[in-house]
Design a protein around this nucleic acid. Structure first.
Length: 559
RNA sequence: GCGCCGUUAGCUCAAUUGGAUAGAGCGUUGGUCUACGGAACCAAAGGCUAGGGAUUCGAGUUCCUUACGGCGCACCA
C-alpha cells in the first residue's frame, strides 16, 4: 500500500492538479502531528485564498476510512494520520511474507547498470584510501541487484603504464624470486617504492624499455608482469572475500590496448582531434574545461583514451542503462572531460555515465604518502578491528562457541560500516581510535540489537500476528520505521548513497531498543501483546538483516 | 588566477531535496531497570546552521558575495 498515492487520490481541490498535490505531500517533523502532511501555502497563491481556509476545506471534504483515521487542519497544513492497526497489519504481514526479499523490488527488471568500483592497481597493496570505493561500490552493486537491476561489477584494474616497466627494472636490480614469493605484494611494492627514490637515469630508460617490451609481447617481461598480477589478484581476492565483494569483470586498462585505435580514428573522422604542443587533444575550451589529452607527443595513449574505449566497449557489451564510476572526487575534471568527449562524438548515452564521487581519506598527520611510509594498510585495520572484537567478546561472552567467526563479522563489519555511514562526499580523517570504537552509532550497536532479537525469538518461539491489536507508541514508531525500508533502499539507489541504508539501520535499532526497554515481550501483559511483540521482533530482525546484507555486513546470532 | 566540492552543538555527523520547535552519537553531568542480553535505556547542558546580502507565505537547503579548508587545472593513473 502506498499511502501517499492513496491520500492524493482522495483529495480534490478545484484549480490544483493531483500532481501538484502529490509533489507537496510530505512527512511532518513530529509523528505526533501526523503521518503525512500537506502544506497549502503554494495553493494559496493560485487560488487567491488563505492557506488556512484551503487546509480547512480539504480536511472537511476528506472522507475518513479504514486507512486514514484522522485529518486535521493546522495553520495551513492538513495533517493525516493513518490507521495504526492497518499500517501494522500491512507492514508486518508483508515482512513475514517477503522475508529476506523485504525491501526488494522489480523496479529494475530488464535494466542493466554497470558499476566500476574498487579498481585496484597491480603491484600495490590495498590501503585505507581504497576502502571507500570498494565499500560504496559493493553496496551499490547489491542494492541495485536487490531492486531487480542486473548490476555488472567491474574492477577496472590499473594494469597499464610505465610503472610496470619501473617495477620490472627494480626487480631485475634488487629483487629475487624467493623474496617476492615470501613477501608477496608488500615485497613488490617495496621494490617499486625503492625505484622511485633510488633509480638512476639509466634505470629510468631501462624502465621505459621494459614497458615497451610488455607492450610488444616480449615473453620474459610479460611473464614477470603476469606473475605480479597473479600475486596481486590473489592478495586482493582474500580481502574481497572478507568484505563480501564480488565482480563480474576484471577487464582493466590493458584490456583496452587494442580498442583505443578505433576510438582515435573516430575522433579524427568526426573532426574532434587536433594537434596541440605536439600532443593530440580534444579541445573543450567552449565548455570551460581544459583540453582532453588523447595521445601524448610520443604517440602513446593516456588514461582518458582508455576510459573512452572502456565506456564504448561497456555500452556495446552490456547495453547499460547507466554506468557508474565510483571514484574519488579528485578525478572530477577527468570524468567531466571524458563524458563530454563522448557526447561530442555523438554518443547519446553519454548522459547515462555517472561519476559517483566520494571524499578523500587522510591520516591525522596529513595526507597519506607511500613514499614517506605514511600509509595505513587495510589488512592491518581489519585485523586490529577483529582482534578488538575478539577481546571484547572474550570479556562479555566467554562461553560463546564460534568466537572467531563472530569476531570476524563484528570487526570487519565495523570497518565497512565506518566507510558507509556518512554522506559519501565527506572527507574522512582515518584514526584507529575511531575505527576501534564500537560505541554509539556503529554496526556493533545494530548487531547487538539483532542478537537481542535472536535471543528473544529463541526463547519466545513462533507467534501468530494478532488480528486486531492496538499498538502503543513505541510499537507503532518501530513498525513505521520498518515500513520505510523499501523506500529507503530506493532512495539509496537513486542518490547512489548507501549511507541512507546504514543510517536506517541505526535509527531502527534505536527504536527497537526503546521498544525493548519499555515493553515486556516474553512476560507481556496479555497473550495478544506477547504474540504481537514477538512478531514485531522478528520483523525487525528480518529488516535489519536485509539492510546489513546490502551493506555487506554479517549479523551473528549471538555475540 | 580559474573551476569543482565542503563549512551545522566542544568533537564526528544527520536533517525525507523549499516546510512546522534544526536532530543523533561521542565526550561531560545526573539518573533508570531485582538484566526478556547493561555493547542497553532516560534526562540535562550544549546552536545567530562560517559572515553578509537577495529570492518568498517560509531558507541549513536556492541565487549572489566574502572568509576559511580540500581537490583539480597538458602529455601520471
Amino acid at each position: 500500500m502506498d499511502y501517499k498515492v492513496y491520500i492524493v487520490e482522495r483529495i480534490s481541490l478545484e484549480g490544483v492538479s493531483k500532481e501538484e498535490i502529490a509533489q507537496n505531500l510530505c512527512v511532518p517533523p513530529d509523528s505526533a502531528l501526523g503521518d503525512f502532511a500537506l502544506p497549502c501555502f503554494k495553493f494559496s497563491k493560485t487560488l487567491r485564498r488563505s492557506p488556512v481556509s484551503i487546509a480547512e476545506e480539504i480536511a472537511s471534504a476528506f472522507e475518513k476510512d479504514a486507512v486514514i483515521s484522522s485529518v486535521t487542519p493546522v495553520n495551513g497544513y492538513v495533517n493525516f494520520k493513518v490507521d495504526r492497526k492497518g499500517l501494522v497489519r500491512e507492514t508486518l504481514g508483508r515482512i513475514a511474507k517477503e522475508g529476506d526479499r523485504y525491501g526488494s523490488s522489480d523496479l529494475g527488471k530488464g535494466r542493466t547498470i554497470c558499476i566500476d568500483y574498487s579498481s585496484v592497481n597491480i603491484a600495490k597493496p590495498f590501503h585505507i584510501g581504497h576502502l571507500s570505493t570498494t565499500a560504496l561500490g559493493g553496496a551499490l552493486y547489491r542494492i541495485f541487484n536487490f531492486l531487480g537491476y542486473k548490476a555488472v561489477g567491474i574492477n577496472h584494474l590499473g594494469d597499464y603504464g610505465t610503472q610496470f616497466g619501473k617495477l620490472i627494472s627494480a626487480y631485475k636490480h634488487w629483487g629475487n624470486k624467493e623474496e617476492v614469493e615470501k613477501g608477496g605484494i608488500h615485497a613488490i611494492n617495496d621494490l617499486y617504492v625503492r625505484f622511485n627514490s633510488e633509480a638512476t637515469e639509466e634505470m629510468e630508460r631501462e624502465a621505459r624499455e621494459y614497458f615497451r617490451l610488455i607492450e610488444s609481447g616480449d615473453k620474459e617481461a610479460n611473464d614477470l608482469f603476469e606473475w605480479f598480477k597473479g600475486l596481486t589478484l590473489a592478495y586482493v581476492g582474500k580481502i574481497y572475500d572478507r568484505l563480501h565483494i564480488k565482480f563480474d569483470s576484471y577487464a582493466g586498462e590493458r584490456f583496452y590496448t587494442d580498442k583505443m585505435q578505433p576510438v582515435v580514428e573516430e575522433l579524427k573522422e568526426k573532426g574532434l582531434l587536433q594537434e596541440s604542443q605536439g600532443a593530440m587533444i580534444v579541445d573543450l575550451e567552449p565548455y570551460g574545461m581544459a583540453p582532453c589529452l588523447i595521445l601524448r607527443s610520443d604517440g602513446a595513449s593516456l588514461y582518458a583514451t582508455r576510459d573512452l574505449a572502456a565506456a564504448i566497449y561497456r555500452k556495446q557489451t552490456y547495453d547499460f542503462e547507466k554506468c557508474l564510476y565510483v571514484v574519488a572526487y579528485q578525478q572530477n575534471l577527468h570524468f567531466r572531460q571524458v563524458f563530454k568527449v563522448l557526447e561530442l562524438m555523438g554518443k547519446d548515452w553519454a548522459k547515462d555515465l555517472v561519476h559517483v564521487a566520494y571524499g578523500m581519506v587522510s591520516l591525522e598527520d596529513g595526507a597519506m604518502s607511500t613514499r614517506q611510509g605514511k600509509v595505513v594498510w587495510l589488512e592491518d585495520v581489519l585485523s586490529r578491528c577483529v582482534e578488538k572484537a575478539a577481546k571484547v567478546l572474550e570479556e562479555k561472552n566467554p562461553a560463546l562457541e564460534n568466537k572467531a567467526e563472530v569476531a570476524e563479522k563484528v570487526g570487519v563489519g565495523a570497518v565497512i560500516f565506518g566507510a558507509l555511514y556518512n554522506n559519501k562526499i565527506k572527507d574522512i580523517t582515518f584514526s584507529y581510535e575511531k575505527a576501534l570504537n564500537f560505541d554509539g552509532e556503529t554496526s556493533v550497536y545494530v548487531q547487538y540489537t539483532c542478537a537481542r532479537a535472536y535471543s528473544l525469538l529463541a526463547k519466545g518461539g513462533k507467534a501468530e500476528l494478532p488480528a486486531n491489536y492496538e499498538p502503543n507508541t513505541q510499537e507503532f514508531d518501530l513498525v513505521k520505521a520498518l515500513s520505510e525500508f523499501p523506500e529507503t533502499v530506493r532512495a539509496a539507489a537513486e542518490k547512489y548513497e548507501p549511507s541512507l541504508v546504514a543510517r536506517f539501520c541505526v535509527d531502527t535499532a534505536q527504536k527497537f531498543n526503546k521498544f525493548y526497554f519499555d515493553c515486556k515481550i516474553l512476560q507481556a501483559e496479555s497473550d495478544e501483546a506477547r504474540a504481537f511483540r514477538l512478531c514485531l521482533t522478528e520483523a525487525t530482525l528480518t529488516t535489519l538483516k536485509n539492510a546489513f546484507t546490502l551493506l555487506g555486513i554479517g549479523v551473528p546470532e549471538k555475540m
